[in-house]
Computed example of a mutant assay.
Amino acid sequence: MKKRFFYIISFLLIFCIEVLIALYVRDNFIRPYVGDMLVVVLVYSFVRIFLPTGIPRMPFYVFLFACFVEVLQYFRLVETLGITNRAARIILGSTFDWADIACYAVGCVFIVLFERIGKNS
């Protein structure tokens, strides 16, 4: 229960940060790089709410999921489906970028390091 509570708080905090970045940050570093790095941490925290003990290689699976969404952007899924809802367009994204994949990888490395430090303390 303690772990689940930690991940609920983590998810809510990171979600609020992501919303603030999406709405108010218009720069060339925080929004494109930190926001993309945090999104995999957000997804990971969300999954850990329901699987508090985790599963082996979960950060890798989150990375694969993020890459899958990025590939959908390459194939212009938002335009193909005619999605006009602003929130949906932001969540799904509309522009493929290799730098996004690199940011997802950095976020997942951060998750692995965080989890290892947590296990050792």
Score class of each variant (00 low, 15 high):
Leu64Asp: 14
Phe65Asp: 04
Cys108Leu: 04
Glu70Ile: 10
Ala66Pro: 09
Ile111Glu: 02
Phe110Ile: 13
Arg89Leu: 09
Pro59Arg: 07
Leu51Phe: 15
Thr84Tyr: 02
Arg86Ala: 13
Arg89Lys: 15
Val78Arg: 06
Gly107Pro: 01
Ala88Met: 10
Asp97Pro: 02
Pro52Arg: 14
Thr80Glu: 11
Ile91His: 08
Phe75Glu: 00
Asp100Gln: 05
Tyr61Arg: 08
Ala66Ile: 06
Cys103Ser: 06
Pro56Ser: 08
Thr95Val: 15
Leu72Asn: 12
Asn85Tyr: 05
Thr53Val: 09
Phe50Met: 04
Asn85Cys: 04
Val112His: 00
Val69Ile: 15
Asn85Met: 07
Gly118Phe: 06
Pro56Phe: 01
Glu70Ala: 09
Leu64Thr: 14
Tyr74Thr: 09
Gly82Phe: 06
Tyr74Met: 13
Ile91Gly: 12
Ile90His: 06
Pro52Asn: 13
Cys103Glu: 00
Gly93Leu: 09
Phe63Asp: 09
Phe114Cys: 14
Leu92Gly: 07
Gln73Glu: 06
Lys119Met: 01
Thr53Glu: 13
Tyr104Thr: 03
Val78Trp: 05
Leu113Ile: 10
Ser94His: 01
Ile55Phe: 14
Ile90Glu: 10
Phe75Asp: 00
Phe110Glu: 02
Ile90Gln: 11
Cys103Gly: 01
Lys119Thr: 01
Glu115His: 02
Phe63Glu: 13
Val71Cys: 08
Leu72Val: 07
Leu113His: 00
Phe63Leu: 15
Ile91Pro: 12
Cys67Trp: 04
Leu77Cys: 03
Gly93Lys: 10
Arg86Gly: 10
Lys119Phe: 00
